[in-house]
Design a protein around this nucleic acid. Structure first.
Lengths: 164, 164
DNA sequence: TATTGTTATACTCTATAACTATA
DNA sequence: TATAGTTATAGAGTATAACAATA
């Protein structure tokens, strides 16, 4: 799709308008838009993710939240929200889920009693190892589309966009 | 974020756990995951998109649908759904919106009376020109992060993932 | 029987504002 | 006054199944 075909011998044959049943779609300028491409990739990854991991007992946000809590013990919910670029209201539900799974715990900070000090449980750390493996496995079929160097290029270009 | 810092002199100073108020976040292995990066980029683009175009009278899907209808006159709703990788039920609402805006029209196909033959109105074609300009303008600040060659690389790598 | 468009439903994600308790 | 966590609400997006008309 890098160069969208200008279409369409097939359509012309069909009087050009009525029947488009089997002609190639002309994507016009859409493949040149960053937003369109990101959206399409997101759809692809998301559908595969949902179908592959629907038996595992967790939702998308939980995984990255757990990873950050494990890597940053003592982090607060607001810091977590900032790090994940989500609203702090969202972290409430996220932490509720993590606690329900027994993967993380909130502790009222003794230095600032407004803050919740977050920490992963041993079960949470164990779960993270498993989930990470599962996630890498899930991404494998997409990563396999790229050479190691291409993949690194892709990740690095993506990171540039959201890193301030 | 390409190389996540292993953290954190600051945290260590604060007894290592309680206070994490101003230390750098350790993103652990998340930046190596395709899904995490796509999600973050998506968030970034989406927020900017919503805030910049909330006065324009259209929603995200309408734009790409209109572009495809203009480029492929006579396309059906099901074909549109396939081309956009969305469900055909979704195109119903999309077409309702496009018709409400006077940008596209459904016509019952005479060759297959189940199909709706879709076509853009003159107003729709005019709107698309305007929206496209607006969209490019909106993406500009993100595209500016890349050299022309980098941008082309990024788009082409993304396209590879969702093109079968 | 299969397909096109449609309707209905339910679930998730996201954005926002307001409240409380603490600082 | 400002901040951390919470609650509530509303809107958008998505997935799914079932239906009528038509092939």
């Amino acid at each position: 799709m890098t160069k969208p075909k200008k279409s369409t011998a097939k359509a012309a044959k069909n009087k050009g308008v009525e029947d488009t049943a089997d002609r190639a779609i002309d994507y016009s300028f859409l493949p040149d838009l960053l937003g369109f491409n990101i959206r399409r990739v997101q759809i692809e990854l998301w559908r595969d993710f949902v179908h592959k991991l629907d038996d595992e007992q967790f939702r998308s946000g939980e995984f990255s939240a757990l990873a950050l809590i494990v890597a940053n013990p003592g982090i607060s919910q607001t810091e977590l929200a900032r790090a994940l670029a989500i609203d702090k209201a969202h972290t409430v539900a996220l932490l509720d889920d993590l606690e329900k799974n027994g993967w993380a715990a909130r502790t009222r900070s003794v230095e600032d009693r407004r803050r919740h000090t977050l920490a992963a449980t041993p079960a949470g750390r164990k779960a993270l190892v498993r989930l990470r493996k599962s996630m890498i496995e899930h991404e494998q079929k997409f990563c396999a589309l790229y050479s190691p160097k291409e993949l690194q290029t892709l990740l690095s270009l993506l990171q540039r966009l959201y890193t301030r």
